[in-house]
Amino acid sequence: MSKASRGPNALAFAVGIGCLVVFLLVMEALIQFGFVNRFIIPPPSEVAMSFERVIVEEDILHRFLLTATECLTAGVMLTVFGVIGGVLLHRFKLLQQACETWIAAAASAPVVLMYPLFLVIFGRSAWTIIMIGFVAALPPVILKTLEGLSDTRRVLVNVGKSFNLTPMQSFWKILFPAALPTIFVGIRLGLIFALINIVGVEFLINFGGLGQLINELAERYDLAGTYAAICFVILVSVVFFMSLERIERWLRPAH
């Protein structure tokens, strides 16, 4: 990313918001004039009106905290096991040659479909949800860690050698810091995967936080409420990832 594109660009932001507003207005018009059935898609104005109701009546704060806790737990596990996994693959070439391809394949596999298996193992509990999020999101963290370590420029490693670094020093003082930006990308990807899967499984097994709320509202055929809850989830994830990006930037100055 170039430095220029990093700064707050007011125009780009305004255009982005503008596109969204135009999209909503077009939807509103299509529905109001009867081109789209309002019993399939409720008009945006109605969705906006039901926000308050969903937030007040459905105990959304509690549900949000539940989902957030699940995400956080999965995130911590992801970071620990993903990074360790990547380091091991980097350290042992045989392991890398043996596993890299199918880890990459696993990254695109719809792990969510295995939820019955997880239900059997972990029961209808938060752990089922956490474990599915964790398993689904592990591959990108492993792969990005491996990529960061392998892509460390040779000359930097050679600088270390020329200063007679031990393998341990070489790892902690050169390889790891050099790979850190890429590892962060992996963790951010992993958290995105985890959040998607966690809300999805909550919806599927009708248990836990925001996903279950969407399920409930949909079963009550409260369409405006359903869409309001979906918007809320999207809003939460946008805020979540914007803050992740902030943290990431703050942790690696002037890269």
Partner: peptide, 15 residues
């Protein structure tokens, strides 16, 4: 240890 190397490529630690 008696030899110090300066490399042809850019070799500062960016972090």
């Amino acid at each position: 240890p008696s030899i110090g190397m300066v490399f042809q490529e850019e070799s500062t630690f960016p972090w």
